[in-house]
């Protein structure tokens, strides 16, 4: 049972991180490799602010959210929009966005590495303290519980938003067919900006919660999560909200099994191997729609 609970906690973190990536990839065709840097840098900003002044949990979370959303908007306007404007077709745009994301991510990484000398940083000076609650033989920290709740709430919210609202409908139609969407009078640029902001906010939020949960992270933490999130998304199927949740919890479960059953550090290989297997045998993922498969 305790194992199951830790799977759920780990899965929630993955979900929170992958949700934003899945949202932009599935709707506006942006696989943002700066997502990990946004995640890390939001948390890093909160760390810097905390060195100056004392803040409670709600304000830190809010800070992470805002910083993440702003960074994401900045990347969209300064990098991705420029790339899309110059690219001759969709295939080159996709590739250059991938490369541009990797390139842009170097900047926040360099700043954080420079400042922390690549040492771990955390929120030790916040007024919030991590407690452990016990229910029967189950133990859970308050921050883990919060992560699970936030991940599930945001996941449901994103799914409902995509399914129900006018904006969600517009986004989904962009994901399926950009030209039809343009004919429907959808302002692609505005929709892309909103999506990127939401996605960045989620990255910032997950960065702060992750740092609280773990105690401290390093500047390089974003890179590993990036590849794991990619595994979650393609396992579930690009563009599927149900899929990304399935992917996140499946990956968490698989990693937990490997961690408890094997010695050494094979756990890192789980997500990489998963990517490989999914791409070989079912590139559209478990819940993927064949028509959105981008091959």
């Amino acid at each position: 049972m305790q194992d199951l609970l830790s799977v759920v906690t780990l899965g929630s973190i993955y979900l929170l991180f992958a949700l934003g990536m899945s949202l932009t990839w599935g709707t506006i065709d942006i696989l943002n490799f700066g997502h990990g840097a946004i995640f890390m840098f939001s948390s890093f900003t909160a760390y810097l602010v905390l060195q100056q002044t004392e803040l409670g949990l709600p304000l830190i979370v809010l800070l992470g959210l805002v910083v993440g959303a702003l960074m994401s908007l900045l990347i969209q306007v300064l990098a991705f929009e420029q790339i899309i404007k110059r690219a001759k077709d969709k295939r080159t745009a996709e590739m250059q966005i991938l490369i541009g994301g990797i390139g842009v991510a170097i900047i926040p990484l360099a700043i954080a590495q420079h400042h922390t000398k690549s040492n771990p940083f955390g929120f030790s000076s916040s007024t919030f303290t991590v407690d452990t609650w016990t229910m029967g033989d189950l133990r859970i920290t308050n921050i883990a519980a919060l992560s699970i709740v936030v991940a599930l709430v945001l996941w449901v919210a994103a799914a409902v938003w995509l399914r129900r609202s006018r904006q969600g409908l517009a986004l989904r139609s962009i994901g399926v067919d950009a030209e039809t969407a343009a004919l429907m009078g959808i302002d692609r640029r505005k929709m892309a900006l909103v999506t990127m902001a939401v996605s960045g906010g989620m990255a910032g939020l997950s960065g702060v919660l992750f740092t609280f949960g773990l105690g401290a992270i390093t500047a390089e933490s974003g890179d590993t999560l990036l590849v794991k999130a990619f595994a979650c998304i393609i396992l579930g199927g690009v563009g599927s909200m149900l899929g990304v949740a399935f992917g996140a919890f499946f990956l968490a479960a698989a990693e937990t099994v490997v961690l408890t059953q094997t010695s050494g550090s094979w756990v890192e290989a789980v997500s990489f191997g998963l990517i490989f297997l999914v791409l070989l045998f079912r590139p559209s993922g478990v819940f993927g729609r064949a028509d959105v498969r981008r091959t």
């Binding site: 590739m95 990619f230 550090s265 094979w266 290989a269 990489f272 191997g273 791409l279 070989l280």
Partner: peptide, 27 residues
Amino acid sequence: LIFKLNGLYLAMATVAFDLIIGVITIN
């Protein structure tokens, strides 16, 4: 194995390949 994959999917499959090599050397 993977030459039929295209674009991003091929790129990520090869990134996964690279990272797996790294894990193997550690273990």
